[in-house]
Design a binder for these strands. Structure first.
Length: 751
DNA sequence: TTTCACACCCACACACCAT
DNA sequence: AATGGTGTGTGGGTGTGAA
């Protein structure tokens, strides 16, 4: 059995204060019971003490930071961090610790000091859970690159920063948000508790605060976490997309020169320029990436052992190949899975009456099942019985004749044809005495069909193949004899194996190898698809008709749940539709644009003036299906919205929708599929873009409802219906100009 | 030497097609 | 319609190289 899934880790090096009992090894198909946290079950903190960590066994209900000192070297939410530390009994240092105490820590997402540094998320997680979390998971390894940059910035008094940012958006992300090699400070996507068991693993420059060298057998309390993906996403919007430069006040900002070299990659996170990368080209897995991988596996539990699922994930995690992500899951993450989402017999996610995904700790069957000895024996005896019936027309179990007087002539003829011509009636062997010998058939197709219906653990094809490749090769009599002998002697017979000897196919990639070449090849294909669409399209469009027949090859298509899948399918489909429109730019006529501008101005006070700082980050609806991992490295909702504003303020032509979408993905972490869907809902009006996020986060609805300029599926249906009252209501909601523009969208089949 | 990321392997379950 | 040929990629790994 695989090391996959829910087997109890062999070694419990760390035990979290919140840990639960873990899965037992007895049934690898069943997850561990969701028990009550047993804070005394292991000597917590023993391993941690190696790293100077506070002993979580103390676990006071108040003052969890008692005896600990923190120097907050992080300006974002500094006051909040200071308050949290003080409120929980910790001491705030006014200067960097000396490094001589195991109870003094720097709080920062970056470690430029070579001192014991924890992420701000550590403070928040501890306070949220009222317990000292596993320190090891929040340690930030020393980062020489950042140390150098920090030094430079200090020397230059910050003057250089702006130039650098303008010239290199990748570095912009690296400096302003985070850098990939550093353990992230971001709260995992939607989870209240980060558990970056690997945050420090394999990171160059890891120093004295590094974890123990042994792999961490992680048994953290995952069930207490709300999976970020559980939020019901409804990006599946319904509308098409359009970029309207006429409506959007153009603000010229140089943007194009910094486009990523490979637009096919939806960069999961910012990249450090190659020259600054460590000499090796391997990337450590961040906690966000780990959580993303786990989330996808939970939503695709039947595919948990495949290669293709991880290859698809790699499309969203650019710095890793399918090979490495699969390995990462199998070796490190599987033990953290803890639960999956329930799926139906066909592997589709099912939801409860409220539309939420249902957690389960029972794993569904995977895609292919190994044949067991029992199955082999059963097949052998059933084929043997079939032969016996054919030859002697006797029931193998009762010995009674199958021939009846009322047999139709053709039936009698068929029986006669099948029967042994040399057999003398009455001298037939019993079924036990009967030997199949060299007989290989015929076995009617119906046999396997019926057999598969009675034995649905394998398909008809699989049963037939098992018969052909294994049973015939091994010999039916041989296997029956072997199996019965083993059973008689109290041993466990084995299934047939090593009976296939098909030659290796030249020129065919080795199955199960998804390396960087394979990834590049597929990305290239993706890129070509996008470029073709972008070249032909004035706009990127997304729709919702699931019955449209255009089929695009969407490598990541199976990756996400059904809604997202539909969303992506719609995107591809409508890119195709745009392609057929052949570069027809939809532009807002002057009068309509004027009307929309006026409406927008009047709406601003009501819909655009919420304080983003009132929205905790990451917002509740921010799932990894909608946002890239590096979205979660923003420090606040405001910071994210600022970035969005900056991007959309650039001077995009109507034909640059693809670039806009790419830039939003690269720099703001909005998945291309999502931003395309938003653009569709906005009829391409970029001015409303920040409003979409603000209202979505504030009202916890996607799409946000009853917001001017944001078209819902229902709105479009009402507009289509043409009902006078409905259109009046829509006009009150969206304004005259937007109604006219939307009508054009609908008329152009873009919605 | 250990750990990690990533590459690579291969038997075989399941599939489909041509004859 | 039974059968053989063979494509595909799952399932469960192992190998390799760098830090």
């Amino acid at each position: 059995m695989s090391q996959d899934d829910f087997e109890t880790p062999a070694v419990n090096t760390y035990v979290d204060a919140l840990e639960e009992p873990i899965a037992g090894p007895n049934d690898e198909q069943v997850l561990g019971e969701d028990g009550v946290a047993n804070t005394n079950k292991a000597p917590a903190g023993e391993a941690q003490s190696d790293t100077g960590a506070p002993d979580s066994s103390e676990k006071p209900t108040e003052g969890i930071f008692r005896g600990l000192k923190f120097y907050v070297a992080h300006n974002e939410n500094r006051e909040e961090l200071l308050s949290l530390i003080r409120e929980n009994g910790g001491e705030v240092l006014s200067a960097l610790p000396s490094g001589g105490s195991a109870h003094e820590f720097v709080v920062s997402p970056y470690n430029t000091t070579n001192l014991a540094t924890v992420t701000p998320a550590y403070i928040k997680s501890c306070c949220t859970n009222n317990v000292l979390m596993k320190l090891q998971n929040y340690l930030v390894p020393f980062d020489e690159f950042r140390a150098v940059i920090d030094t430079q910035l200090q020397n230059d008094n910050g003057d250089k920063t702006e130039d650098t940012v303008a010239a290199d958006p990748a570095k912009d992300m690296a400096i302003d948000v985070n850098i990939p090699e550093v353990a992230s400070n971001a709260v995992p996507t939607g989870g209240s508790q980060a558990d970056p068991a690997n945050a420090t693993s394999g990171t160059p420059g890891t120093t004295g605060v590094a974890p123990t060298t042994a792999p961490v057998a992680d048994t953290e309390k995952t069930l207490k976490q709300e999976p970020h993906g559980e939020t019901k996403s409804e990006p599946s919007a319904t509308e098409s997309t359009h970029v309207v430069s006429e409506v959007h006040p153009p603000v010229t900002v140089a943007a194009d020169s910094n486009a990523p070299a490979d637009p096919a990659y939806e960069n999961a996170r910012p990249t450090v320029p190659k020259s600054r990368l460590p000499s090796h080209n391997k990337s450590s897995f961040t906690e966000e990436e780990d959580e993303f991988i786990l989330d996808v596996v939970r939503k695709n539990p039947t595919r948990r052992t495949t290669h293709t699922l991880f290859d698809e994930i790699s499309h969203y995690v650019p710095d890793h190949t399918g090979n490495s992500i699969r390995h990462r899951y199998r070796v490190y993450l599987a033990k953290r899975l803890k639960y999956v989402y329930e799926v139906d017999a066909s592997g589709k996610l099912v939801r409860d009456e409220n539309g939420n995904l249902i957690k389960t700790n029972v794993l569904p069957k995977s895609l292919k099942n190994k044949f067991t000895a029992e199955e082999d024996y059963s097949l052998a005896t059933d084929v043997k019985k079939q032969f016996y019936r054919d030859l002697y027309q006797l029931d193998p179990d009762t010995g009674k004749s199958l021939i009846t007087d009322d047999d139709a002539p053709n039936e009698a003829a068929r029986r006669a044809l099948m029967m042994d011509p040399n057999n003398i009636p009455g001298s037939e062997p019993s079924f036990q005495q009967y030997r199949v010998g060299e007989r290989r058939g015929p076995v009617p197709r119906e046999f396997f069909k019926t057999y598969a219906e009675k034995n649905p653990n394998h398909t008809e094809n699989a049963w037939r193949d098992r018969f052909r490749k294994f049973l015939l090769s091994y010999g039916i009599d041989n296997y029956v004899a072997y199996y019965e002998r083993e059973m008689d002697q109290g041993r466990s017979p084995e299934a047939m194996k090593n009976m296939t000897n098909r030659p290796k196919r030249p020129g065919v990639p080795t199955p199960g190898n998804y390396n960087s070449y394979a990834k590049r090849a597929r990305s290239l294909s993706h890129q070509q698809q996008q470029q073709a669409a972008a070249a032909a399209a004035a706009v990127a469009v997304q729709g919702n008709d699931p019955n449209t027949g255009v089929q695009y090859s969407i490598p990541e298509g199976d990756l996400l749940d059904e809604e997202t899948l539909n969303f992506i399918s719609g995107l591809r489909r409508d890119l195709s539709r745009i392609e057929s429109n052949n570069n027809m730019a939809f532009e807002y006529p002057q009068d309509i644009a004027e009307s929309i501008r006026n409406d927008f101005t009047n709406e601003e006070s009501q819909f655009d003036n919420f304080d983003p700082d009132d929205i905790p980050f990451p917002p509740q609806l921010a799932s990894t299906e909608l946002f890239m991992p590096h979205f979660f490295q923003f420090n606040s909702t405001r910071q994210f919205l600022d970035k969005v504003n900056e991007v959309i303020s650039r001077d995009y032509e109507p034909s640059q929708a693809e670039k806009l979408v790419q830039d939003l993905c690269d720099e703001a972490g909005v998945r291309k599929t999502f931003s395309t869907g938003i653009l569709t809902a906005l009829s391409g009006d970029l001015m409303v873009f920040p409003r979409y996020f603000l209202c979505m986060f504030k009202y916890n609805a996607n799409p946000p409802l009853n917001i001017p300029g944001i078209w819902t599926r229902e709105d479009d249906e009402l507009l289509r219906s043409g009902n006078e009252e409905d259109v009046k209501a829509l006009t009150r909601k969206h304004g005259v100009g937007r109604i006219e523009m939307r009508k054009r969208f609908i008329a152009s089949d873009l919605v």
